[in-house]
Simulated scan of single mutants.
Amino acid sequence: MSKIRQIIQEYFNNTYSESIRKKFSIWLVDSKATEEKDKTLQEIWDNLNISADTSTESSYLQLQHRLFIGRKTYRRQLFRKIEKITAVFLIPILSVAFSYFYLKNSKLPAIENIEYAEYFVPNGEIRTLTLPDSSKVLLNSGSVLIYPQKFDGKTRDLYLNGEACFTVVRDENKPFIVKTQDMHVEVLGTVFNVSSYADSGNSSTTLESGVVNIRLKNKQSESILLKPNEQMLYNRKSGVSEVKQVNIETILAWKEGHLVLQSMSMDEIIKTIERRYDVTIFLNSNKYNKEKITAKFIHGEKINEFFAVLQQLIPYMKYKIEGKKVYIY
C-alpha cells in the first residue's frame, strides 16, 4: 500500500489543526505524484456511500472558493460527481490527507517552523493586503493568497489561486516569487498582475513596470522575461505559452471595479460573472458555444443591467435571475 493511500486512510481516525490544513494548500499545487494522488482520491470518492441533501449545492459552491485546488482535471471530476457527496465530507478528504503527507514527507527544511497566513477574498469583493515586507497586493474576487507571516528565508514565496496585482518592495537579496499551479513568477521589485484561477482554461502574467522572470512548471529549464506592457498567456489544455503586447489599462481595469470582456466565450463569461456578482449561473444549453463577446462595463453596472446588455449582444439568449441564481436558456 502506498504512503499516500495510508495517509488518506489514517485521516479518518484523526483530527488535524487549521495550520496543517493551510499547509496542505501549498503542497497541493506541487506537481509531484499527481497521477497517484488523483487515482487514490478518486477510488475513495467512488467508494463513499453518501447522499447529498438540500445544502449540497450551496456548500459546494462555497468550497470551490475556499480550497486551493491546483488541478483543473480533478475539479471537473468533482463537478460530475456533485450529486454523490456533500462538501462537508470533501473538505477533510482533500485537505487533511495532503497536509499530513506534506508535513511528514516533504524534504523542505524546517517547514514546521514557518507560520502561514491565508487571505481569502469572497466573490463580489476586491481587497487590499499589505505583506510582511510592506509590498502591496490587490486581490480580485474569489482569490486565495497564502504567504509566510514573516519572510525569513532567502526568498519571499507566496501561493496564489485567483487574480492579484502586486506592487513589490525591492530587495535585491531576497527575490519575490509568486507560485501558481502553472508557473513561478520571480521579481525583485516591480508592479505586475497574475491571473490563475483553478477553474480557468488559461493563466497569465502581465507586467506594468520593472522586470519579471517566469518559469512554467512544464518547462522548468526555460525562463520567460517580460518587459512592461507585455503579457505571458499560458493555455492549460495545449500547454502552449505566448508573449504579446497588451493594453495594461485594459488588463488592470478590474482594479477600478470595471469589467472588461475580451473575446470571451460563454463559459469564461459565466465564471467571471459568478465571481464578480457572487451568484451561481446555470447554463441549460450548448447553443452559445461559438459565441465570443467583447464588451466593457465601467459604470458599476448591476447584474440585471449586465445581462440586459449581454442579451443585446446575443439577441436569441434567454435568461432569468432569481436571487443569487441565474438561469440561461
Rank of each mutant, 00 (worst) to 15 (best):
T180K: 01
S95P: 05
L226V: 06
E305S: 06
L226Q: 05
F89D: 06
I281F: 13
R236M: 01
I82W: 09
Y277S: 13
E291T: 14
K290F: 06
D171Q: 15
F192Q: 05
K154F: 00
E10Y: 00
G210E: 04
Y316K: 15
D133K: 05
S25E: 04
Q262I: 12
Q262R: 15
V29F: 03
E118C: 09
K325S: 05
R275E: 06
D182N: 10
R71K: 01
V121D: 08
S195D: 09
R236G: 04
T56P: 03
G124L: 14
H65E: 05
F297E: 11
A164G: 15
N289L: 14
Q181T: 07
G153R: 07
G201M: 13
S223C: 09
T272I: 04
I26R: 02
N235C: 15
R75K: 07
L145M: 12
D199L: 11
E256F: 13
S55F: 00
K292I: 02
K255H: 10
D53Q: 07
E208C: 11
L313Q: 08
L28A: 08
G323V: 09
S238T: 14
K174H: 11
I82A: 14
I69L: 08
I321P: 09
V211R: 12
I224K: 06
S238A: 10
G323D: 06
L225C: 03
Q64M: 01
G189L: 05
F282P: 12
V144L: 13
L259Q: 14
I298N: 10
F12P: 01
F120W: 09
L313N: 08
A308M: 13
D157V: 12
D38I: 14
I44T: 01
T167R: 15
L94S: 00
S203A: 12
Q62A: 02
N286H: 15
K107N: 08
L310G: 11
R276S: 12
G201E: 13
E274C: 02
P175I: 07
Y277C: 10
I146Q: 04
K154S: 08
I7P: 00
D157C: 10
Q245G: 07
L28W: 00
V169E: 11
R236Q: 06
I281S: 15
F12G: 02
L48P: 07
T130E: 12
Y319P: 03
K84D: 11
I44E: 01
R76K: 10
N113Q: 04
